[in-house]
Design a protein around this nucleic acid. Structure first.
Length: 961
RNA sequence: GGCCCGGUAGGCAAAUUGGCAAAGCCGCCGCACUCAAAAUGCGGUGUGUGUCGGUUCGAGUCCGACCCGGGCUACCA
């Protein structure tokens, strides 16, 4: 084994030849990175792999993941590696605690960012993507991450695409049986649906029997049941990006999340995923996983489950159905509102205004038809943004017709208004101004009656009362809700509605099915071809279906505001690829390929499975391997769902990636491919590294590194100066245009990777965002230098430790430090763990020589955070193998209890004295000693003692009269 | 507007159940080393936890109101 040779010629004049400088750090780091790679130090065995060698795989395992990066090509800044360093520290710590740790990093290489970068540089996306991955791997390798590189892949690898397409096929070839598993529902293979139709166990939609249908009719019925299906429906069309987008990719302002371009609603034929079938399980199972409450709340809100009731009102042209979460307030309905786009609007529009119609209701028009037409036109022209800026001002017109309130038989007027949205519930509401703020505003605007049906508290002075209280004014000949509180009143009303046939209990969701196709080049092609009837999936043997080369891979994009444009997928421009002759079992026939591609979320929906079985070309994942790494762990809880043990990433994927991945994983679970019900058991959101940027008087950003901080001589406030001119400081992101980028490469050059790692981990708690401060990094270098000097002689490079036993105090400090570092590491409080190690090291600095029994545990404790220098010191301490699998130090419990503790003696809450007592001291003795204290007597100033609070052994508080 | 986080020395931060506020890092000051500087080492340096009130023997920590900063959400019936 070749040893690292440290130079004996000092880099500068008189400096110690073996001082831990950035140059030495770099040599140490390269040496150990090469050696780890050469020896396969971080190769993680799978159960089958271990068995092949006749070994057992460790029973304790830890599956650790980062949210994988897009290889963007812009290069990394110091904020990017924060999470990767943190997971590396966790992984190395867990490994030293005896866990079989699985940790690797892959690349999310499909999708818009990679494609846009390629468009900018005018090169093929595959070419730029691969170049970017190479560059990123280089930058990250320099960090010394303990990854099993055999498990690394990119979502653009043909081997990976194959299984992404295979999973799509699984979803396409299945349907959701809502009655399965006691009503919870489960995905089942589509064959089982066909059998149920054939056997007559399941009613065939349309009323005819399966035998009566021809092949095309059968296929259409089946296609309507698939979990991945094609639908012609209003979708989000973004002309500037040239593609459609999912609801999750559109902001509340109606713009694209990526690029912030306008998005328009268009009716288009697109692939959809039936994620709504899983809405209940996606909500319910949030209670079974360890995720930040914030993310769980965001997912709950996004899914938006609202229990309530649908109620049918008799109206001209048929029954008008509404959804309400408050059926208990039905007696308070004084009008109804339908969305302008509601299909019944025409039937509801009366020929003439009824007798006595008030002027404001008509909008100034002579007939309801004119008023309704004018309002609908006006509403359709409004953009999301205009509706928002109008705020809460309510508009609408009367349709001229009335409906009948099923509870009390009263006639209530029907309005159209744009505060009711077609996309939610039934697009129509029963308006209850007494208990709904929006309805109250509308009622005030149009002078409509208001009836309270919930008694507000006496001190309530608001308008609509949405809280709980006893029902009032809510009785007819058959039922009375009066006196009942909300939940009882709702239940009573629903059962009455159901008995009367006027309504049913219902649950409504905000979640919509997932729009899954994109008109882009750089994504997975759909493993689908079409004949005259519809889509047919390709056989598994035809996978992966790879992208053809195209003359122009950039999609057709348009003026951002030109809504009247059509998506034109790049793949449609390759007729020789689109038109294909295949034999799918009934002889060679001509088919058409799908010219859409999948969204970039597809690849990230299942990458956790590829990490655990990266080379499998027979199955998506081996069942034994999946059970070992991801299976449920009943020791965690009885209904543990399994999943990745720790998943670290930013909060920005709270409802996109994390929702989609949960959905796919549940489909795979239902179909029996995995044993875990959730992909990610524990989620941790790291904060961001922010930075200051500086703007001069013209509003231009100036290079942040050249800005000086000076004190204003007049006000003595800190001001910032660039080239002698004052500049204004801003706080926010790091970015090229902000001229405040600091790169890891700069940090490696100036300090080395270990210092950089220590600094990032010691800046503060991992889940908080904080500003980068380059000049503070030197503190971490000084710490490592001092550790190095305690272990290695700077003159000779030999170990400086002595084999004499440590003194008692040093030993106690060591074991207290071990104890604290262990619990800090386990809780991912790396900043405090590092602080404790600094304290211990500072103590060692004061000794004349450092005993081995202290140096070795310190080196091992530092290893997760600063692995290269730790390995080097470990080696110089005489160990020939890597410390990666050395047990993490454990504290001696006997050395954690002090022989004496300092007891604080307070008088009236103020500290007056300190006394040394044994830790086992009892209350009475302690009180006696405290009262005997001179300082206490002085502080009492002759006053009597009213009360003494004793918290042995640490505190006594004397309360004077 | 609603909901959720956060506010501790000049900056980043630490403080089991309420129990000595400020561990650690940067900065700043001084000294050593040096012809000098840098680097390094050693020593020193911050009257009080955003504001007001409450509970308590005791509050950074609990409760209420307000101020400031950040995030999510925004007619979802």
């Amino acid at each position: 084994m070749s040893q690292l040779q440290t130079s004996t010629t000092p880099p500068t004049g008189d400096e110690a030849p073996h001082r831990y400088t950035s140059e030495l750090a770099e040599r140490i780091e390269h040496y150990w990175q090469d050696r780890w790679e050469r020896e396969g130090t971080f190769h993680t065995p799978n159960p089958d792999e271990a068995a092949a060698k006749g070994e057992d795989v460790p029973s304790k395992k830890f599956f650790l993941m980062d949210m994988f990066p897009y290889p963007s090509g812009k290069g990394l800044h110091v904020g990017h590696p924060l999470g990767y360093i943190a997971t590396d520290v966790v992984g190395r710590f867990k490994r030293m605690c005896g866990f079989n740790v699985l940790h690797a990093l892959s690349y999310d290489a499909f999708g818009l960012p990679a494609e846009q970068y390629a468009v900018q540089t005018g090169r093929h996306p595959r070419e730029t993507t691969e170049a970017n991955i190479v560059n990123m791997k280089r930058q990250l390798r320099r960090l010394g991450l303990a990854h099993d590189e055999r498990r690394s892949f990119a979502t653009t690898d043909p081997d990976y695409i194959r299984w992404t397409q295979w999973i799509f096929k699984q979803i396409f070839e299945s349907w959701y049986d809502a009655d399965a598993d006691g009503g919870r529902g489960r995905a089942r293979p589509i064959d089982e649906l066909v059998k149920a139709f054939e056997a007559g166990e399941r009613e065939v939609p349309g009323g005819r029997s399966w035998a009566e249908l021809d092949d095309a009719e059968r296929r259409r019925i089946i296609d309507d049941h698939r979990l991945a299906y094609i639908s012609e429906s209003p979708v989000n069309w973004c002309p500037a990006l040239g593609t459609v987008l999912s609801n999750e990719e559109v902001t509340a302002e109606g713009r694209s999340e990526r690029g912030n371009f306008p998005v328009f609603q268009r009716n288009l034929r697109q692939w959809m995923m039936r994620i709504t079938a899983y809405a209940d399980r996606l909500v319910d199972d949030l209670d079974r996983i360890q995720w930040p409450e914030k993310v769980r709340t965001m997912q709950r809100n996004w899914i938006g489950r609202s229990p309530g009731a649908t109620v049918r009102f008799a109206a001209p042209g048929g029954e008008l159905e509404v959804f309400t979460t408050r059926p208990d307030t039905l007696f308070g309905t004084t009008f109804m509102v339908v969305a302008p786009e509601h299909p019944m609007v025409e039937e509801l529009t009366a020929k003439a205004w009824p007798e006595g119609t008030r002027e404001p209701w008509t909008g100034g028009f002579a007939t309801p038809a004119e008023a309704v037409a004018a309002y609908r036109r006006q509403a359709s022209m409004k953009t999301e943004l205009e509706r928002q800026t109008e705020g809460r001002h309510k508009t609408g017109v009367f349709t001229g017709s009335y409906a009948v309130n099923p509870a009390n038989g009263e006639q209530v007027p029907i309005f159209i208004a744009d505060y009711v949205l077609m996309g939610y519930g039934t697009g129509a509401i029963m308006a209850v101004p007494g208990q709904d703020e929006r309805d109250w505003e509308f009622a005030e605007q149009f002078d409509l009656p208001i009836v309270r049906t919930v008694q507000p508290p006496d001190d309530f002075d608001g308008k609509a009362y949405v809280g709980d209280g006893p029902a009032i004014n809510s009785a007819n000949d058959e039922i009375s809700l009066n006196g009942l509180h909300k939940d009882d009143a709702i239940a009573t009303m629903i059962s009455w509605l159901e008995k009367r046939g006027a309504g049913t209990g219902t649950v409504t969701y905000r979640l919509r099915d997932w729009l899954f196709s994109r008109q882009r080049y750089w994504g997975e092609p759909f493993p689908i071809v079409y004949d005259e009837v519809g889509p047919i999936s390709l056989p598994d043997s035809a996978l992966p279906l790879l992208l053809p080369d195209v003359p122009d891979y950039s999609p057709k994009t348009y003026d951002p505001d030109d809504a009247d444009t059509e998506p034109e997928p790049p793949l449609a421009r390759v007729p020789e690829w689109v038109e294909v002759e295949l034999d799918l079992g009934d002889g060679p026939r001509r088919y058409r390929r799908d010219t859409n591609t999948m969204p970039n979320w597809a690849g990230s929906c299942w990458y956790h499975l590829r990490y655990i079985d990266p080379a499998n070309d027979e199955r998506v994942v081996d069942p034994d391997v999946e059970r070992y790494w991801m299976g449920p762990q009943p020791d965690r809880s009885a209904d543990d769902p399994g999943g990745v043990d720790l998943y670290v990433g930013g909060v920005e994927h709270a409802v996109l990636h994390l929702l989609y991945a949960r959905f796919w994983h549940k489909v795979l679970y239902d179909l029996g491919w995995v044993s875990s019900e959730e992909p990610y058991f524990r989620l941790f959101n790291q904060g961001y590294i922010q930075a200051y940027a500086y703007v001069d008087s013209r509003g231009q950003y100036v290079p942040a590194e050249q800005v000086e901080e000076v004190e204003d001589p007049e006000t003595s406030e800190t001001i910032y100066v660039y080239n002698g001119q004052p500049v204004r400081r801003e706080y926010g992101k790091m970015g090229k245009s902000l001229k405040n980028i600091v790169t890891p490469d700069e940090m490696y050059d100036a300090y080395g990777a270990d210092t950089f790692r220590v600094y990032e981990m010691s800046m503060g708690p991992l889940d908080q965002s904080r500003p980068w401060e380059t000049r503070a990094v030197v503190g971490s270098l000084r710490f490592l230098q001092r550790v190095w000097r305690n272990v290695v002689d700077e003159q000779t490079g030999e170990t400086a430790v002595v084999d004499e036993p440590a003194d008692d105090e040093t030993r106690r400090i060591l074991h207290r430090t071990i104890d604290a570092v262990r619990s800090d590491m386990a809780a991912m409080r790396f900043n405090t763990a590092i602080a404790r190690m600094i304290e211990l090291n500072n103590h060692l600095t004061k000794l004349s020589a450092v005993p081995r029994e202290v140096a070795e545990p310190l080196v091992l404790m530092i290893a997760p955070v600063a692995p290269h220098i730790a390995e080097e010191m470990w080696s110089r301490l005489g160990h020939s193998t890597s410390l990666a699998y050395e047990p993490f130090p454990t504290p001696d419990p006997d050395l954690l209890v002090d022989e004496t503790v300092t007891c604080v003696v307070q008088v009236a809450g103020k500290v007056r004295d300190r006394i040394e007592v044994p830790p086992s001291v009892d209350d009475d003795t302690l009180q006696e000693q405290a009262l005997a204290s001179e300082a206490v007597q002085r502080a009492l100033e002759g006053r009597g003692v009213r009360k003494v609070i004793v918290r042995a052994p640490k505190l006594v508080n004397v309360v004077p009269d």
